[in-house]
Amino acid sequence: MSNATANTEQDFGDKPIERRDTDNYVNEYVDSFVDKWDDLIDWDSRAKSEGSFFIDVLKERGAKRVLDAATGTGFHSIRLLEAGFDVVSVDGAPEMLVKAFENGRKRGHILRTTQADWRELNRDIYGRYDAVVCLGNSFTHLFNENDRRKALAEFYAALNHDGVLILDQRNYDAILDHGYSSAHTFYYCGDNVSVHPEHVDDGLARFRYAFPDNSVYHLNMYPLRKAYVRRLMREVGFQNIETFGDFKETYHEAEPDFFIHVADKRYMGEK
């Protein structure tokens, strides 16, 4: 485990808005923040908001073996297990994996967890998967374009020839172009939790998370534009990239809180 295991204080250095490097996420997910993560994302509300979207997409493609590449505290791993999928749970933050394992055990499941860096994903996982899911706005932690390309290439390599990648992101286009006005309808459903960007520019979205006990945490994230993510996916080799807005196929660009990209590894005909 990393040295961050015993930490309760985040470390962004003396100039937090200048901290723009991929590897800092390990210092952001300290124990005390991870312990509160499930207050931030209410599981029952999130399940209701998502409905069976991800389960339906995976079943439509006949997927059985799924790699949850951004497990977090285990929400999607557990939902997919309960829907009958064979799931392997990966995260780069060891604190998250500990919490995910505990959450799984509380619900009667033993998660198969692996700590891995996406940029070297296939070094730490075994075999190939029918689907890779990277959810919870996690891809935004990659600040360097080479890191993004490497991660997508690793996802691609982890898939069977007819596999699918499902990757979500915040609607940073709306935040960058129109300001932040989200009601957190779909993901951030916890009661009395305040989430908003403290600083936004073309290279950084620094979000502030305030909890009822007056504790405050931050995440530094790269504000990914939708068209940019789709282009990177295509350049790595993904085909037929469908993008949904808050689980809907049709939407106005500024409305969704989140975009969900569904990308096939092999060409399956125009949709």
Rank of each mutant, 00 (worst) to 15 (best):
A151T: 11
P212Q: 07
R170W: 08
H141L: 05
V87T: 06
F211Y: 15
C134L: 07
W118T: 05
S138V: 08
D130G: 04
Y126Q: 11
F207G: 08
V133Y: 05
V98K: 15
C189A: 01
S215K: 13
I125K: 10
D117A: 06
N146E: 15
N137A: 14
V200C: 10
Y129D: 06
R112C: 01
L176M: 11
D191S: 15
P94W: 08
F155V: 08
S182P: 03
N220E: 05
V90N: 02
P212C: 06
Y156H: 14
P94V: 04
A116H: 01
T114N: 02
D117S: 13
E82F: 05
N171T: 07
V200N: 11
V216D: 04
I175K: 03
Y222H: 14
D168E: 09
A157E: 07
V193W: 08
D91V: 11
V132H: 04
G92H: 07
P223S: 09
D201W: 00
H109N: 08
G190I: 05
A100V: 09
T140M: 00
M221W: 03
N103L: 12
Y217K: 09
H218C: 06
L97S: 05
N103G: 08
N171E: 02
R225A: 01
N103Y: 04
G136S: 12
V195H: 07
Y126R: 13
D168A: 02
F211A: 13
A116K: 04
F139S: 06
P94S: 05
R123H: 12
K99Y: 02
L142T: 06
N122A: 06
L142R: 03
H218I: 06
H196N: 02
D213Q: 12
E95Q: 15
L81T: 02
D162F: 04
D202M: 08
S215A: 13
F101Q: 13
T185S: 15
R206K: 13
V88A: 01
D173N: 12
V133T: 14
P197F: 06
F85E: 01
D86C: 07
R119E: 03
F155Q: 04
A93I: 04
D191R: 15
R149K: 14
D124W: 06
P94L: 00
E120F: 10
V90R: 02
L81I: 00
A153D: 03
D202I: 09
L111M: 03
A158V: 12
L135G: 07
N192C: 07
L159F: 07
S215C: 09
G203A: 09
G203T: 13
V193Y: 06
